[in-house]
Amino acid sequence: MLKKIVAYILYTFISINMAYADTDVLPILSGVGGNFNAVDSDGNMVEFNSYFGNVVVIAFGYTNCADICPFTLGYLKKLYAQLNEEEQEHVKILFVTVDPEYDTPAHLNDFLNYFNKDFIGISGTKEQTDHIVSIYQAQYNELSREGMPTHNIRRINTKLLENDEEEKAKLFSHSVSIYLVDKEGFTRSIEFTGTPKDKFVEKIQQLIKE
């Protein structure tokens, strides 16, 4: 009996020991992120807290972005591919548009499908967008008051229009950071496309295991 008790205590302490041995716990970045309401690229109303239980990767951008957005999504596509199927089930990649006026859920969905069908577009009203941007302490600015003809913009995909009117869209500057959020909604790391993918994947895997 004594042997069993000692063995049990030993097992318990070794487990604790192994947990404590993990010295690379990602810190919570207090004040970065939180709950929000928006519309996803399937047109459903979503609350960020509904993603609890998943590791979430969040990037900001817009579909008419000719610079960093396609590059960021290409990066996230490769990153996501490095995760195995089981890991992918616990990871949500969110792309939050800073141009909700132009980026309707359907258009956002078409755009993201070029990269990965699992990626989720986040749109909503301007107030909802501003709220998401503010809680992640990200930034975006309109570069032009007037829209410019979209045929002049180098784009991933054109918007499907019901009429032949010349379409115009605004250009924006926006944060390039990629936020890594844990299963309880706490931001644990801020990365960018310069982060080596292996390193980023390790962080995601670490949060999945928590």
């Binding site: 970045l29 207090s30 004040g31 970065v32 600015n141 926006h174 944060s175 801020i190 990365e191 960018f192």
Partner: peptide, 16 residues
């Protein structure tokens, strides 16, 4: 009191 973004990375305030 407001919690700001901690100064961690050079790219966190970078816009493109």
């Amino acid at each position: 009191e407001k919690h700001l973004i901690p100064d961690l990375t050079p790219w966190q305030n970078l816009l493109c």
